[in-house]
Write a protein that binds this DNA or RNA. Structure first.
Lengths: 334, 334
DNA sequence: TTGAAAGCGCTAACAG
DNA sequence: CTGTTAGCGCTTTCAA
């Protein structure tokens, strides 16, 4: 005989109060006497009562869930970002569902206002441009929306100052001028992913290089696929062309790894005739001695989750924008 | 004046029937006259009515959603698997939320019967062992459960015959006996991910090698990280040790790519003094000329989604197990 | 074949 | 401070 799961009614009976009083306790209403509250809490405890989320959602209340829409290019970046986001959500008894947006057909799926991602209290877009993702630039349902690793004036966003990161890289490489190359990651425009972060890094790099009287020829910007092999290939090409020592700014660590490996194979010494700066601050860079620009990824995630919770509490707030600063980690490669 | 979204009541009024009749139409009840059905459908159309999922869920009905729990090691594999799964779900107006399980803390989050993944009609576990994921080996809520790329006698599963794949690889390499190595992927046991697929491939390979009178020394099995670099490193090591021509079975394509690259660098000719077989059938292998064992990944996804829909319709069915066959794709590398 | 009515579990408005 | 009441939108009896 599987006894039905207890409802608010059962708790009320057991505590000798009325259902709405239990509801008030559940929702932390101020106007409940300590005594009543205690009785109710005891009843909840003893029955193992948990409010039905389905009923709450139906009632128009909170689902205590948020949806995270993100491209899934399978990098350490999103794993760390999610860690940050979930740590904050956990503290507030919220949970998150993920909705990958790797393909255009995927987009179609989420046009409908009834689609699963919108059965949540709020939305988090990671590395995604709302103009590309949503028709008319906003979700089909009026849900609080926060962007992370992406920007749009109409919404809250938390992003890294990628241009500043590019400038840091340029400053390091400027210390010892040499023939300078940038390895840029190719962003595919047939996906909703197209955050422009790699290009921002390049622009910052260019600007700072110019200040330091360095220069970057247009054909010294090599565009590659997002992989270590991509970096390796580009580097082989660069080493064929270049005559003397070389400076390379790889716009992400994964690609920088390929640069380093290929450099070693080509008999180069990182830090002297081949100077390399990466971007992201991934863990392995420490062992590899890669100078890199660290992003506070977990912090971005936490900040984004906090921003969403704030907005959940008050939808009328004006959009808030948070720019996080990258940090140079100096190692032997530059 | 934002007009409220239409409810079943509004449709009923407009069609000149009663709400329950509309419900019957919505749910494809047989006993509705064609005439009434048409009237109702016209009303639904003209009002743009969509039934409230929240109300349905509350009522105890279907949410028309499923949850997919998966490790997220960020490979092409999951992207393709999801494509397959979603294509079938789409056809049946189902949607899917993703719940990554990369870490142990992540597990904690889903212990609670009220957790978000269980607010769905069914559960799909990809590459995950239910015994590791759930306390007591089953979800905290009695939800239909289907495994994909993983197996357990108590549940429906769809998996690849990995041992057969290993055998295929052995047969190819046996054609020209040589010093033979296997590059095995290290599975991390501190995550819920630990499907054992790589080991199954190795076992099949060993067995078939023996049949062909080949042999595999224990120290010819090299364990590496899941990356192309991992394969490269292993290969460098192998080429140092080996004296003559070499056969290598890499238990996934990503690692095989590293093998190929390192082999070329070491002056080897794939297909003659270095014969390589990969596993997965990734797209790039065609261009690279890699002989590989193809998995019907999308098909696995589709089969899994279909299995879940079947089980949704009838929970009492005995568990059904589907073993899909890998296929050898012959290219120049072996 | 269609209509009437009850109820899923919770919360907010109102009354006391 | 607590009780009463109504209703969110849908489906499922039961009755006609």
């Amino acid at each position: 005989m599987a006894t039905r799961r207890p409802r608010i009614q059962d708790v009320a009976r057991k505590a000798g109060v009325v259902p709405s009083t239990v509801s008030r306790v559940l929702n932390d209403y101020p106007d409940v006497s300590a005594e009543t509250r205690a009785k109710v809490e005891r009843a909840i405890e003893s029955l193992g009562f948990r409010p039905s989320q389905a009923a709450r959602a139906f009632r128009g209340g909170r689902t205590h869930s948020v949806s995270i829409m993100l491209p899934m290019p399978g990098t350490e970046f999103y794993a760390r970002l999610l860690t940050g986001i979930e740590s904050v959500l956990d503290e507030h008894a919220y949970s998150a569902g993920l909705f990958p947006l790797l393909t255009l057909p995927g987009l179609e799926r989420y046009r409908d206002a009834d689609a699963l991602p919108y059965r949540a209290d709020g939305l988090l877009l990671a590395s995604l441009d709302p103009e590309r993702v949503f028709q008319g630039g906003r979700p089909p349902v009026a849900l609080p929306l926060v962007l992370v690793d992406s920007r749009h004036p109409a919404f809250d966003w938390i992003a890294l100052d990628n241009a500043a990161g590019g400038r840091l890289a340029a400053q390091v490489l400027n210390e010892r001028p040499a023939e300078t190359f940038v390895i840029l990651i190719r962003e595919r425009f047939d996906t909703p992913f197209a955050s422009g972060v790699f290009n921002e890094r390049l622009q910052g790099f260019k600007a700072a290089l110019a200040e330091g009287h360095g220069r970057l020829d247009d054909d010294h910007v090599v565009t590659v696929e997002f992989s270590a092999s991509g970096g390796g290939l580009a580097t082989r090409h660069i080493l064929e062309v270049a005559r003397g020592p070389v400076n390379i700014f790889a716009t992400c660590d994964l690609v920088a790894r390929g640069v380093l490996e290929e450099g070693l194979r080509g008999g180069k010494t990182p830090g002297s005739d081949l100077r390399v700066v990466g971007f992201d601050g991934e863990e392995w860079t420490e062992g590899a001695g890669l100078t890199t620009i660290e992003q506070p990824i977990e912090e971005m995630g936490r900040a984004a989750a906090r921003a969403l919770l704030v907005r959940l509490a008050d939808e009328t707030l004006p959009p808030r924008h948070t720019l996080l600063e990258p940090r140079l980690i100096r190692r032997s490669s530059a």
